[in-house]
Write a protein that binds this DNA or RNA. Structure first.
Lengths: 202, 202
DNA sequence: AGTGCAACCGGACTCCGGTCCGTTTATTCC
DNA sequence: GGAATAAACGGACCGGAGTCCGGTTGCACT
């Protein structure tokens, strides 16, 4: 059930540093991801089945589940690239997203950038949805929450920083579930209201 | 796929007033709901299968899906009772939740009451989760959003009321996905931070 | 090169949500 | 009461996610 051999990075803070992937496994991972991308591009996410992907790769279904743990895990892996570059952006990129700008400006930029990133891959993010128990127990989320907490603290925002960080993250996450027809009109407005709320808290 | 014959009420604003349920159908609806409640109490939601429920009721599986449309729909129906009483509370109950209190106080009470209601039935709410497309296209959500918009307007809160309402609802919805072990410690803090945010907006 | 072993692979199998359609039953109108 | 009709019923059936385990293969060590 647990995916194994994931590449390292802020997204997956490999604590117990596992032994590296075997070369055939790495090759299959790449093959699966690129093939999945191709199939999705052609027919959409809905119609991608694990059997289908396995067949298209000339691989057994067990291989997919060994690598990614679940259907959702596969899509998570597809999202990881942009997730990592987003993380790099707010951890060490140029201001106002990265260090150097005042904390409130960074927080505003963080929200806007997150919304922009999410908007570009909503079907993928929906398909990467985990069941309840794991949903919030994910490294990427912890990192984002810690970042927000830190900025709130730096800005001297009063109140319960962890709880506020949770609330703010909830706002950013929720756009994934906007009905498609509302997306184009609501996204910029939600970005603006994010800024509004953040500044009000300061 | 579509559930039919649902009882009327603010939760399901029956516009085209459908013909009433046939009596056998109503009996089966009741039987299914009470049996489902009993089975859940015994073994938890996870282990309730539609085949199992059908068998326990001495009913065909088709009957369940005709009534509730999907597994999620069944759990939605189980949640509807408390949902309706929550709606009654903020639409016409006593202040500060109902009419009569200042809008900001009502908004604070709304959030606290919603969180309390949700906390009492988190497993049910998780199981009632709809797939992406329908998630936000639900009468109960529209009603809640409209209510928040109205209160924001009454309070003279500046900013984009629909977008703010969306953001605020996102906060309330997100507690459902808190990992169980964080729930008891985080819930009251999230309630407080709700109040904090709402007052900051005013 | 040879060997031991852990990791990997494949695909048949299980389980469950959801559909379909022939049959049964409540209701309505004579 | 009896016939006509629409709704409800039941359970066989289907598709797809996830599991399992016997067989295979890369890798480290000698």
């Amino acid at each position: 059930m647990d995916p194994i051999g994931a590449p390292p990075g802020p997204l997956t803070p490999t604590v117990g540093l596992r032994p590296p992937e075997r070369s055939d496994a790495a090759r299959n991972r790449e093959l699966l991801l690129t093939t999945a991308r191709r199939l999705i591009e052609g027919d959409g996410i809905e119609s991608l089945t694990m059997d289908g992907l396995a067949a298209a790769c000339g691989v057994g279904k067990g291989t997919i589940f060994r690598r990614f743990g679940s259907r959702a895990g596969l899509f998570q892996a597809l999202v990881d690239d942009s997730e990592r570059s987003f993380q790099a952006g707010f951890l060490s990129g140029p201001p106002p997203l990265g260090p150097g700008a005042p904390p409130i400006e960074r927080l505003v930029a963080f929200g806007r950038e997150r919304l922009r990133t999410a908007a570009g891959q909503i079907p993928l993010l929906r398909a990467a949805e985990r069941p309840a128990a794991e949903r919030y127990a994910v490294p990427a989320r912890h990192l984002a929450a810690a970042h927000i907490r830190g900025l709130l603290a730096q800005a001297g925002v009063e109140g319960d920083a962890p709880a506020l960080a949770f609330d703010l993250l909830a706002i950013l996450d929720s756009v994934v579930w906007l009905p498609d027809e509302d997306l184009t009109v609501m996204l910029p407005r939600i970005a603006d209201s994010w800024e509004h709320i953040v500044r009000r808290l300061a």
